[in-house]
Amino acid sequence: MAKSVIIKIKRQADPKASSHWEEFELPYKPGMNVISCLMDIAADPVTRDGKKTTPITYDSNCLEEVCGSCAMLINGRARMACSALVDQLEQPIKLEPFSKFPVVRDLATDRSVIFENLKAVKAWVPIDGTYDLGSGPRMTAEEQEAAYPLSRCISCCCCMEVCPQFNQDTGFVGAATISQVRLFNTHPTGAALKRERLAALMGDGGIQECGYAQNCVEICPKDIPLTKSISEVGGAVMKQAIGDLFRK
C-alpha cells in the first residue's frame, strides 16, 4: 500500500465557535512539510472518513522560517509549520492553534499583541530624519555580532506561548519584547530612549513577572539568547527603579 500521512487538526470556525477535531489522510510525498500538507488539503478538502470539509485557515508567507507567520502547536510543541518536516514528525501529526492567543479561525491566531508591546517599549532608533546626515555611529565588529542575533527575532510569539507567566491575568510583555529592549538600549543612538524603555517594563506585566523558567529560550526557533536578555534588562530595570526611589 502507498505510504500516507495522517494529520489531526483542531478546527474552529470563528473566534466564538467551539472547536472540534478533523482527521485527514494524505498521499505521502518525499520532502513534505506541514504547510505542504495544508496546501494538499486545500486542493482536495475531504476528511479521512470521506466527509467533504473546508480548506484549513492558517497564516503563512515566506515558507523559509523568516517571516514569523506560521506559528502553531505541532504535536503539542510551539513551532513554525514551514520548517516542520513530515519525515521528522511522529504520526498522527496533531495541529492546534496557539492556546494563549485569540483564535481567528482554525490554526490562525491573533498575535498582534507583540506589535503593541513593541510600540509600548519604543523599539526603534530615534533618528532625526531621513535627510542626508552622513553615516551612522561607528560600531565594532563585536558590537555588530552581539546585536545581529537579537535583531533576528521574527515576532512568531513561540516564546510567549510556552511561557508559564504569559497569560491574560498577568499581562506580561514576554521574552521577545524584553530582548528587543536590550537590542535598542545597546545601540548608540537607540540608547537615548533607554530610560523610557526600562520604565515601560516596570510594574504589573513588566519584567518582574518573569519566573526565569527558561521555556522561552528553549523553544525560540531563531536561538535568540532570551534568558541573557532578560537578566541584563532585569538588572537595568532594577537599578533604575532604585535610582528613581532615591530621587523622589
Binding site: T130, G136, T189
Partner: peptide, 13 residues
Amino acid sequence: DLLDRMGVPFNRT
C-alpha cells in the same frame, strides 16, 4: 548611511 543610522546591524570591518 540612512539604514545604518536606523540601526541595521550591517557587517563591519
